[in-house]
Design a protein around this nucleic acid. Structure first.
Lengths: 187, 187
DNA sequence: CTGTCCCTACCTGTCAATTGGTAGGGAGCG
DNA sequence: CGCTCCCTACCAATTGACAGGTAGGGACAG
């Protein structure tokens, strides 16, 4: 097969979790989408918690790739910062989905520990990248960079959440514009 | 009884939904908390969708009261804006819970239409209040007030989400500080 | 004052569907 | 043979929902 079942399971689980969260994942629906039987998923993932953790981990690993791609393609750090909101915009474009880890942040209380860890890692890699680029761009000093990075990350997650609740990408774009106008993001 | 069963159901459902979302609501657990049987809830709410809509509606109605209280107690609109983040902070203080409607915004795809309506109403009343106070404070003109209000609302919702995923109120406070430093919120 | 009627506020019992998870088997490959 | 990959056939628990019953109280006619 061109893609293994394990990869297909991860891909389908990612799509589902971005629309319905961790609690919205279930083995039968997932198996149908992949074209195998529910019990077969247990061959690759011993439990739902393991699957959830694997999906969340793969999710932030993919985001790291995207961030590195932006850095590689845009030598100008300001240009990188301009492109950053596009990552979250993509989820909305893709069937009004949202960031897996934002959804799971809401589900925090019901998440297995292994999944919580990966959700936090997602925020960490985003904040790390943002902090680095903010310093390069000279937007803030190294002391404030992490706080500002967190603020940008949280604000964009909130914008995505609000836009999703109206199924309105233009609302997302407007919020990003407002963040720039207000001074949270560079112009 | 001092409080009717209907009110007790609404209160318990609110507490649960703020921690586990709409999908986390279930009639048996709810009934146990109230001290009645699951079937009895149907006497007050014909379906889970009706219960969800009633809880979300009550939620934003209570927020309207809180906002009016802030306006009444603080003649200075800047002081009102300073106090606004406290509303979302309270949820975190209360067992690391989060805004009911932020949670439900994530669950958007699985929400009955009646519930969606109330979730959007929550955002509307917040944005309306913020927009009004922003104008009074002279932070922005009447043209930009709604956009800025939405930006503040979304950013604070995002801050709450991020703080919840770490069960860390200090993180929330830090984010609000950063919003002020960056110019999104008035100093 | 009394019997009838209907309402509110619950209850017991049950159902069908969905869920995460398990036991054990089989086909094919090295 | 042993390993990978996937299957059939289950199970127990949970869930939203429903049917039908009952205790108590108020209203009101006779």
């Amino acid at each position: 097969m061109s893609t293994s079942s394990k990869e297909a399971i991860l891909a389908a689980a990612k799509r589902t979790a971005m629309a319905h969260g961790y609690s919205g994942l279930n083995f039968r629906t997932l198996a149908d989408e992949v074209g195998i039987k529910a019990a077969s998923i247990y061959h690759y993932f011993p439990s739902k918690a393991d699957l959830g953790a694997a999906v969340a981990k793969r999710y932030w690993e993919d985001i790291v790739d995207d961030l590195e791609a932006i850095s590689a393609e845009s030598p100008d750090p300001i240009r990188c910062l301009h492109r950053y909101p596009g990552i979250f915009r993509t989820s909305l474009e893709n069937g009004n989905r949202m960031c897996l880890c934002s959804f799971m942040a809401a589900e925090y209380d019901d998440l297995p520990d292994a999944v919580k860890t990966e959700v936090q890692a997602f925020a960490d890699v985003n904040v790390a990248w943002l902090g680095r680029v903010l310093i390069e761009a000279g937007v803030v000093g190294s002391v404030e960079s992490e706080n500002r990075a967190r603020a940008i990350f949280a604000a964009i997650a909130g914008a995505q959440l609000m836009a999703r609740s109206r199924a309105d990408i233009a609302l997302y774009d407007g919020l990003i514009d407002s963040y720039r106008l207000a001074g949270l993001l560079p112009r």
